[in-house]
Each structure stands twice: as structure tokens, then as C-alpha cells.
């Protein structure tokens, strides 16, 4: 019995250890190294062949130089801040669009809900890259959107949308919308309809009952959705690369550049470690709110 209990705990912990902690320690270690044109392209390299002295030498070679470098060059701060801004704004718009969709789904006839759910999930069945490439086709100068707007006569010059931050927002909101809709839908669907009837019974009109009952009670879903969007968007790299323009500055792109273009694995690792630490804050907040929610439901 005891053995089984330990085994149950062991599985998730070893999973965490193997797939998160070990790689993370490697990245931290790399971030404390110096870049060098070698195989692998950094120094010191950890080996056990030189015995104890080798390990001591290894640790004495590590330093925080790369972090100091990050702090001194405003590029990185600007990239972090710009990512933060893009993540916040796109989370906001995803919520703005996602909430009404989730609300509509939750209030649809029960026999329609699986179909609606399917429509939301359906895009996941196509490759993410293909969907982003199609957005390039839609938003480009000669793309469908411009052609349509020109055709109905709203504009007489094609709009430049592709390769601007607007395109990045469109791409992010489009891609992450299901992550917002699904948790909100889950919380709205759970909502006991008699609570709304009670609110109306006690004198609320429809909008009051929405803001006083529906909204607070779907808060958990909204929070979950916001974190599910915000956290990955902060490190997003593909969408700004494909849809963004020269002005789009995101930390994911910088990370790529440091790793591949500069071959500076140590600085790239430092950027990644800082990004992870930044993400820890919302992740911890998210965990807390989840826990509070669980307690409230008991």
C-alpha cells in the first residue's frame, strides 16, 4: 500500500524532474558559461574525467557576466517590455472576443453545443503553420481582405496590415482564442441557471444579473483563459516572425537570434532563464487562483 502510494507520487515527480528540472539546470549552467567558437560553443564544459579538481575548476569558471550584459543593453529590456505589452494587449482582445463566444455557446441549445465546441476546436486539426501562412494570404497587400475591402469600396488604397503589429495581434488573437473560450465556456456551462433566475427574481434586469452574477462566477474561467493566453504569448516567436514587421520586437525573436544567428548559447540561455523567471510570476498567480477556486468549490 505504501509502495503504491510512493509510486503514484514518483511518476509525476520524475516526469517533472526529467522534462523540466534537468533541462532547466542545463540551461542555467549554460547561462553562466562563456561563449566560445568550439564544439559545443561555450566554456567551461562539464566533464567528470578530470576528477574533483575538474569539477572545482568548472564551478570557478562560471559567472553572471551574461546577466550583467542583459541588464546593461537596453535591447533586452525593451524586448521584454514589448513582449509584455503585446501579450497584455492580445490577452485583452482575446478576452473581449472570446467571452461573448463562450457565452453564446453556453446559452445555446444543449443539442447544438457539441457542434459549436467542434467548430472551436476544428482549427487545431490543421497545422498551426498552415493557418498562419493563410493569414499572410488574407492580410497581404494583394490579399483577400484588401481585395474585399476594395471591392465593396470602403477603401481605395490597399491597407498595409501584414508585417505590422496589427497583423501580429490578429494572428495571436486568432491562434489563442480557443484557449480563452474553452475555460470560460466550462465555467459558464457550470453556472446554475437558477442563480440568474434568483437574481431576476430579486429585482435585477438582464444586464445587472450578468455583471453581478454571471461575470463574477465565470471569473475563474476568465482568469484561467487569460493565463493560458498570456503565458505562451509572452514567449511567442513564430507569429511575430511570420506576421510581424521590422518594428515587431519580441523576446522570443531575440532568443532565436542569440541562439542561431549569434551562436551565443550562454546569452541565449540567460535570456531564456530571465523569461522563465518573468513567467513564474503569472504562473504562480495562476496556481494560487486555481487553488482558491478549488477551495471555494469544496
Amino acid at each position: 500500500m505504501n509502495f503504491r502510494k510512493y509510486l503514484l507520487i514518483l511518476i509525476p515527480y520524475s516526469w517533472l524532474l526529467l522534462l523540466f528540472l534537468v533541462p532547466f539546470i542545463i540551461v542555467v549552467k549554460m547561462s553562466l558559461s562563456d561563449t566560445e567558437m568550439a564544439i559545443p560553443p561555450y566554456y567551461p564544459y562539464f566533464t567528470l574525467s578530470e576528477g574533483w579538481q575538474g569539477i572545482v575548476n568548472f564551478f570557478s569558471e562560471l559567472d553572471f557576466e551574461n546577466y550583467i550584459f542583459l541588464a546593461e543593453d537596453n535591447l533586452y529590456w525593451k524586448a521584454y517590455l514589448s513582449s509584455l505589452k503585446i501579450a497584455l494587449i492580445s490577452t485583452f482582445f482575446t478576452l473581449l472576443i472570446g467571452y461573448p463566444i463562450a457565452y453564446g455557446m453556453a446559452n445555446a441549445q444543449p443539442e447544438w453545443r457539441p457542434t459549436l465546441m467542434m467548430i472551436i476546436i476544428l482549427p487545431f486539426w490543421t497545422s498551426f503553420l498552415i493557418r498562419i501562412y493563410s493569414w499572410m494570404g488574407i492580410l497581404s497587400q494583394e490579399g483577400f481582405l484588401n481585395q474585399f475591402l476594395l471591392w465593396i469600396g470602403i477603401i481605395d488604397q490597399p491597407l498595409t496590415i501584414l508585417n505590422t503589429n496589427v497583423a501580429v495581434y490578429i494572428g495571436i488573437v486568432y491562434t489563442y482564442l480557443p484557449f480563452m473560450i474553452l475555460p470560460i465556456y466550462a465555467s459558464l456551462e457550470k453556472l446554475d441557471i437558477s442563480l440568474l433566475e434568483a437574481a431576476i427574481d430579486l429585482g435585477c434586469n438582464r444586464s445587472q444579473s450578468f455583471w453581478l452574477i454571471t461575470m463574477p462566477l465565470s471569473k475563474a474561467g476568465v482568469i484561467a483563459g487569460c493565463f493560458l493566453v498570456f503565458i505562451p504569448v509572452l514567449g511567442e516567436f513564430v507569429i511575430p516572425d511570420l506576421l510581424g514587421g521590422a518594428d515587431t520586437l519580441m523576446i522570443g525573436t531575440i532568443l532565436w537570434q542569440e541562439f542561431f544567428a549569434n551562436r551565443d548559447w550562454p546569452v541565449a540561455s540567460a535570456v531564456a532563464v530571465v523569461l522563465l523567471l518573468l513567467l513564474m510570476i503569472p504562473i504562480i498567480l495562476f496556481q494560487r487562483s486555481e487553488q482558491k477556486q478549488r477551495e471555494a468549490e469544496q
Binding site: D192, E197, A198, I200, D201, L202, G203, C204, N205, L217
Partner: peptide
């Protein structure tokens, strides 16, 4: 409309606002 009647209802599930 329901919200303007001088009628109140106690629901079977109580419908207490959990928040």
C-alpha cells in the same frame, strides 16, 4: 416582468450566490 413583481421565490436548489 419578473424583476418588478412583488413576488419572490425560494428556489429548490436555494440558488444562493456562491461568491
Amino acid at each position: 416582468p419578473a424583476n418588478q413583481r412583488s413576488v419572490n421565490m425560494m428556489f429548490q436548489s436555494y440558488a444562493l450566490f456562491p461568491h
